[in-house]
């Protein structure tokens, strides 16, 4: 075991962490907004809207993410209109292409999670809110959405971890995040196993931290599910 190599590999890969986190969080954030819109379309009971969402979700869930990344990064440049459009400065950069692809992809999965959350809100709660005189929008904002978020949180946490893993694909379009740096280091040092161990541990640590944070959020959002805390023992001055 050559510890100095592990250490130097760790130091070489560490600069990739910010980019990995950035890719993951920006795309999850954008994807979440799109996911909510898709979920609302899907539940809108308006046929054309429903179908748009359905088709979108079907297309993005049944093709590989790498194909989507390639379609956006390499594919769009095929069209002159894209190359001369105002969006070209963005679509030319691998960074934004990766984020767009990741966001579009996670939106498809996320919308199903959010839809499950929205549908899990008991009808009675909505009725009660309506009976109190809340408008539809207020009901959604104050009752439905918070309950749905709470319900969907564990599944969404999983999706975030999947996204952290998915950012590795950005290395294929030249992004030097953790996996990109790892591949480079492997081809320089021919020590695939050691580099793999180091890069893998970094991902595991990131994902572990995210899991803990999601758990904390869940704990914080579900005070009603906590077992009644053991009553505070008041010191009594028993004469016995």
């Amino acid at each position: 075991m050559d510890f100095s190599f592990f250490l130097s590999a760790f130091l070489r890969l560490l600069p990739g962490v910010p980019l990995t986190l950035q890719l993951a969080f920006v795309s999850v954030g954008l994807g979440m907004v799109l996911a909510l819109i898709l979920a609302l379309l899907r539940l809108s009971r308006i046929r054309p809207f429903e179908w748009i969402a359905r088709v979108y979700i079907f297309l993005f869930r049944s093709t590989p993410l790498l194909v989507q990344i390639f379609l956006i990064y390499y594919g769009l440049s095929q069209f002159q209109t894209v190359r001369y459009s105002v969006l070209w400065p963005i679509l030319r950069q691998p960074y934004w292409c990766a984020i767009i692809a990741l966001a579009l992809n996670t939106a498809a999965y996320g919308s199903e999670i959010i839809r499950g959350g929205l549908r899990s809100v008991p009808e009675g709660q909505i009725e009660a809110a309506r009976a109190c005189g809340m408008s539809r929008i207020t009901v959604f904002r104050r009752i439905v959405l918070p309950l749905a978020i709470r319900q969907a949180l564990p599944a969404y946490g999983n999706e975030i971890i999947l996204m952290v893993k998915a950012t590795a694909l950005a290395s294929v379009i030249t992004m030097m995040e953790i996996t990109g740096l790892a591949a480079k280091l492997i081809s320089e040092s021919y020590r695939a196993v050691e580099v793999f161990v180091v890069a893998g541990s970094i991902y595991l640590i990131i994902n572990y931290v995210i899991t803990r944070v999601i758990h904390l959020l869940e704990y914080w959002l579900t005070p009603h599910l906590r077992s009644v805390s053991t009553p505070v023992v008041i010191e009594r001055e028993d004469a016995a």
Partner: peptide, 13 residues
């Protein structure tokens, strides 16, 4: 917890 691409690199290289 780790990306599949990394596993592929491990086995290939």
């Amino acid at each position: 917890g780790i990306p599949d691409l990394l596993v592929i690199y491990l086995f290939y290289f």
